[in-house]
């Protein structure tokens, strides 16, 4: 098995007109995969589809080489999940959750759970109602990890966390993939979290898959060519993907940095961050 998840021709439409798909992609085992896109682009729909929380219209999904519906119970033992909205009842305490999860997961590890609570400074006796947003997130992360999953599926796991906690959490994620059998799918709009630790980037816009690429390939090959307003016509159409007009200049998104650098010696060619890439691809003109 080289892929933790395989998705073929997935599509899902809603009554409000939003449509996800068709999407086909693989999530390679042993790596950290970042899922990016605007709010409403379809990240959560994709994640909930993989988890069979949403019924998809067409397509098929395999997790650990098994059909995700026929083998749902077996598969879910090995998946740790953080969703954007907390799914625990408000009146439970953190130690209640230990008991409940112990009944749900065969591999539930109470010691590991309390270790994480300790590490995150979470008060065991408090009810969920009285936890701050950041504390709830940390609780979800602890819960996701405490049954020794092989695959973590995380929807915005770092949103609402302060920078110190975020870096702690990212370290926990990197520690998780020390085991080559472990995989993380991680959606976020804080792209800087992924800039360093993600191996692949999946980018969804308006329900469509626009990019599924090795992060190093993006960093090495993509870039921004900048030129003044007057020089717009000097850039050939085949050399850029999209462009954006600013007040004093044009930004062109390129995906062949070294070749473009040779061809356009007089123009500025900058490296691109994932955030800039996202903005250009969403806001840029063809």
């Amino acid at each position: 098995m080289i892929n933790a998840v395989e998705i073929k021709n997935l599509s899902k439409s809603y009554n409000n007109g939003f449509k996800l798909g068709e999407i086909s992609l693989n999530i390679p085992k042993g790596l950290i995969i970042g899922l990016i896109g605007e709010n409403g682009a379809g990240k959560t729909t994709l994640i909930k589809s993989i988890l069979n929380i949403i019924k998809i219209d067409t397509g098929n999904i395999k997790i650990f080489d098994k059909d995700y519906i026929n083998y749902e119970n077996i598969i879910k033992e090995d998946i740790g999940v953080v969703l954007d909205n907390m799914f625990f009842p408000e009146l439970l305490t953190l130690s209640d959750i230990d008991k409940i999860m112990g009944d749900i997961f065969k591999n539930w590890d109470s010691k590991l759970y309390f270790d994480f609570l300790n590490k995150f400074n979470l008060p065991i006796k408090r009810t969920i109602k009285n936890l701050s947003k950041g504390m709830r997130k940390k609780l979800e992360i602890a819960t996701a990890l405490a049954h020794h999953p092989k695959l973590l599926i995380l929807d915005e796991p770092t949103s609402g966390l302060d920078p110190i906690t975020r870096s702690e959490v990212l370290d926990i994620f990197q520690n998780f993939v020390q085991d080559e059998e472990h995989t993380i799918l991680f959606s976020t709009h804080i792209t800087s979290d992924l800039e360093h630790i993600a191996d692949y980037i999946i980018f969804i816009d308006q329900g469509k898959l626009v990019l599924n690429e090795n992060k190093d390939t993006i960093v090495d090959n993509y870039g921004i060519l900048k030129c003044d307003i007057d020089d717009f016509n000097k850039v050939s159409r085949e050399d850029y993907l999209v462009y954006k007009k600013n007040k004093y200049s044009y930004d062109f998104l390129i995906n062949n940095k070294s070749k473009i650098k040779k061809k356009y010696r007089d123009f500025v060619i900058d490296n691109i961050s994932l955030e800039e890439l996202m903005i250009l691809m969403i806001k840029g003109d063809k």
């Binding site: 790596l31 950290i32 990197q174 993939v177 020390q178 360093h196 993600a198 191996d199 090795n214």
Partner: peptide, 17 residues
């Protein structure tokens, strides 16, 4: 590769490369 990736907070594929 995986140890170094975690310690310098860089992706596994980058260190592998």
């Amino acid at each position: 590769i995986r140890n170094l990736a975690q310690d310098i907070k860089i992706s596994i594929m980058t260190v592998k490369k």
